[in-house]
């Protein structure tokens, strides 16, 4: 059996007020984090992703059950020891705008610095290595105010690296970022976890990136149900399907994306292949058409020379069209 950095035994999480349980979010959780693995936590709003992460970070107590870090129960750790074992990247508002990127990342060294927080040459070296790991050398001396949201999240990840913890927990770090930054951060975390043998746990709503980069996925449901496994197994065993499908939304196991089925869609026979075929289906679906073999309408993708489309209605002459925009327009005209 592999070494577990973190594992839970019959863990129950939720909220308390004045020592009384107000809401149980999840019960009987048995989860584990392994070094070198990038784990993504998926689940709808209110499914308790943040609560679970905050419980792991020691911000909330567990309602019952046990959390083991390095085979020791979490409540037996002092703040200082915990800060050398688990680092976090949160969505909390910070007031570090007038700090330099270096100063912000140097915060990660505070579990190791002395009373006044002075940095030793070794601390500085570790901070510079963390900056290098996230590729922010050029921004080292910029103020946090002056960098983009994506860069700020990378700086926070570098802070977590400077903290030198075997476990890194990130609560929706890509939530406000544009797509390229999201991919960059996910790629970065995947690389860091495998290269540095860290256990990385990240919560996200971004299914596509999670499927692409995660070594493990935890699915957290609203009704307290939890699934975990490699993304591919979860898809092939239809667990993804069961988890995400609801009325009007279909999960496509082949592409790993969601489809919106339309039973009233007008069927069109499509013949052809390649990238044009893929995007033609996308355009058809959006415009209320669906691919079907039994139809009086047919589209043939002609790929000699520049690609074009041959639209035919039974009994009519074929029309050659150069772009999907015109094709859709023609289809709609024929149907009117």
């Amino acid at each position: 059996m592999r070494h577990h950095l973190l594992h839970t035994k019959d863990l129950t999480i939720g909220y308390t007020r004045k020592g009384k349980t107000v809401k149980v979010v999840h019960q009987n959780l048995n989860l584990k984090l392994v070094p070198g693995e990038f784990t993504c936590l998926l689940g709808p709003n209110g499914s308790g992703k943040s609560t679970l992460m905050r419980t792991f970070a020691g911000f909330h107590p567990a309602l019952s059950g046990k959390i083991f870090l390095d085979n020791r129960q979490i409540q037996h750790f002092k703040e200082k020891d915990l800060s050398r074992l688990v680092s976090v990247v949160l969505t909390d508002k910070t007031n570090v705008g007038n700090m330099t990127v270096f100063e912000l990342i140097s915060m990660g060294r505070h579990p190791y610095t002395g009373f006044f927080g002075n940095l030793t040459p070794r601390d500085r070296k570790i901070i510079d290595q963390a900056i290098e790991s996230v590729g922010m050398e050029a921004l080292r001396d910029k103020l946090v105010n002056e960098i983009s949201d994506g860069e700020r999240q990378k700086a926070m990840i570098a802070k977590a690296l400077a903290q030198q913890t075997p476990i890194i927990i990130l609560d929706e770090p890509t939530a406000y970022l544009d797509l390229p930054s999201r991919i960059e951060i996910m790629q970065l975390l995947h690389r860091l976890s495998s290269q540095m043998k860290k256990a990385v746990l990240l919560s996200t709503h971004d299914l596509e990136q999670a499927l692409r980069f995660a070594d493990k996925i935890w699915l957290l449901g609203n009704q307290g149900e939890v699934q975990s496994g490699t993304p591919e197994d979860l898809i092939l065993s239809d667990q993804f399907k069961q988890f995400f499908e609801r009325k009007g939304i279909r999960f496509d196991n082949i592409t790993g994306t969601f489809k919106i089925p339309n039973p009233q869609a007008r069927k069109v026979k499509v013949s052809g292949k390649g990238v044009e075929y893929y995007w033609l289906l996308n355009a058809l679906q959006r415009n209320g058409f669906a691919e079907g073999h039994e139809s009086d309408l047919s589209i043939e993708i002609v790929r000699n020379g520049s690609p074009h489309y041959l639209l035919k209605k039974t009994g009519g002459a074929g029309i050659e069209i150069g772009s999907i925009e015109h094709l859709i327009h023609q289809l709609k005209t024929l149907e009117r």
Binding site: R54, A57, G58, F59, E79, K80, L82, S83, R84, V86, S87, V88, L90, D92, K93, T94, N95, V96, M99, M107, G108, H110, P111, T113, F115, F116, G117, Q163
Partner: peptide, 24 residues
């Protein structure tokens, strides 16, 4: 106040980050 320099800096990150960095 000079003894509070490091805790005050940590508090700039917010209480959760500060606690995660070992601050009581």
């Amino acid at each position: 106040s000079f003894l509070l320099i490091k805790p005050l800096n940590l508090l700039l990150l917010g209480e959760n980050y500060a606690a995660n960095l070992g601050l009581n």
